[in-house]
Design a protein around this nucleic acid. Structure first.
Lengths: 255, 255
DNA sequence: CGATGTGAAATGCTTCACAGCA
DNA sequence: TGCTGTGAAGCATTTCACATCG
């Protein structure tokens, strides 16, 4: 009971500390993708899509790297973790690569998303590209304000959060997005979990407590602003990070 | 011209590779704060504020770690980089710690922020806690839509982006926030830079090109959603990351 | 006694550098 | 020849473990 945060996991590691030749995981036991890589994959997606739109069917690691402002070796290593999808001498096929990344990110399936809190942020999310394209469908919008309940956004009507049970009965919900004021976030989170949501994405500026089996991530709209303040305040930006990307937004992960 | 992304910096490192006893940097040459730490500082802030509100004046690294879902040693190491602000045997004084972190993040000064693109997201940002509390003031709201220009949000009237020059003459602008559709982002960014903004925070889902002397950061509202998809798709979340935080939102930094 | 602060070890991530394939 | 894929080296960050101090 000394450290509630650090359950025995490292010591009880299933695999031996010094490798006994893992044999390079094949098609069945997929390669381990570092989270650092996972977070870059959506960035590559975005760049690839832009390249495609501007008529580039093929792209080199150098080009991708230049757009993402990272090192080309990193791009190649990231992509090689998904498989050998490039063609030596010419590069990667943009469309094909997008497909592969989608598959890796699990965006080849569709996650039903419910958004709670239909203020400005909730509306922005409901309409945002990232929530409406590949991989996600917004299946429900919830609020408590009678002035908002009943309103139609896109092709979805905002419902009262008391109807959550009914909504859950109609459609499956896998991801809950909290866009409420901080004061409501915890209780809304509890309700969503009660309704069977497996993951929570919290935009409210508060620390949420949820059961460990719920995947919890947390986005702070002002965190980059604060990081900017830090670097702006000391114009001697760390030489290494100067052109470095860093991909963020607080995420708390539970089991 | 082979690698436009990676200027010589590592090799030309000022400090010797093996330390010659740096002598522990004192008050003048501040300690180097790793970016990983910088990004956690706002998280600590939020937790500290909540603890304060709930009547806890003192907090231990264990408590902070439990709330942030990270290792207590990490908390202690992070905080010790700012100075020795804890009291052995009892912990940290929450209010004092908040102050110190503010100072470290440069939030003891006030950065004038201009938000371009007053749709749902722009409004959400303009009203968001993170943009209106310590460290930042929203000094201008800009849009092109005649239906929006002239509208009053909080105590600021939305102005047409053509008035940017005039705005810049009236008040200093240090941070520009882009909350426009992707299609407008690049030109708006150019305008803001032209108006003297030193940093850009881009919420538009597009890759922005800006001069290297501009500090550029980029937030993707759906990136965590995509990361969720990845982990949800393979319910065997990496055992190590299970309770790990990770703090994100794409950031592209230019000198 | 309890909790900080911190060397040193462990781990993870990035970058280099180059073999190898189209 | 050009660009990928990848061991191995180099860094950064995390975690341990414990001396230290209020």
């Amino acid at each position: 009971m000394t450290d509630p945060v650090d359950p025995p996991s490292k010591a009880a590691n299933p695999g031996p500390p010094t490798s006994v030749d893992p044999g390079r995981p094949e098609s069945s036991g997929e390669r381990r993708i570092p989270e650092a890589t996972v977070v870059r994959l959506p960035v590559y997606q975005r760049i690839l899509e832009e390249l495609l739109r501007s008529g580039n069917a093929t792209v080199s690691s150098e080009q991708l790297a230049a757009s993402a402002r990272i090192n080309a070796a990193k791009v190649r290593k990231d992509l090689s973790l998904l498989g050998s999808f490039g063609t030596r001498g010419s590069g990667y096929d943009a469309a094909f690569l997008i497909e592969q990344i989608d598959r890796e990110l699990g965006l080849d399936q569709v996650w039903p998303v419910v958004i709670a809190g239909i203020g400005n942020l909730g509306r922005a999310l409901a309409n945002s590209q990232g929530f409406t394209t590949r991989g996600f469908t917004v299946v429900a919008l919830l609020d408590v304000d009678p002035a908002v309940v009943g309103e139609r956004i896109g092709d979805i009507t905002v419902r009262h959060i008391d109807e959550l049970e009914a909504v859950a009965a109609e459609t499956s919900l896998s991801i809950g997005v909290i866009a409420t004021p901080a004061s409501a976030a915890q209780s809304v989170g509890d309700l969503l979990v009660g309704a069977g949501v497996r993951s929570l994405l919290n935009f409210a500026p508060t620390v949420l407590a949820v059961p460990p089996e719920i995947l919890l991530r947390y986005v702070d709209l002002s965190i980059e602003l604060q990081v900017m303040s830090f670097y702006q305040a000391r114009l001697g930006v760390p030489s290494e990070e100067q052109r470095m990307p860093s991909i963020r937004s607080i995420g708390l992960t539970g089991a």
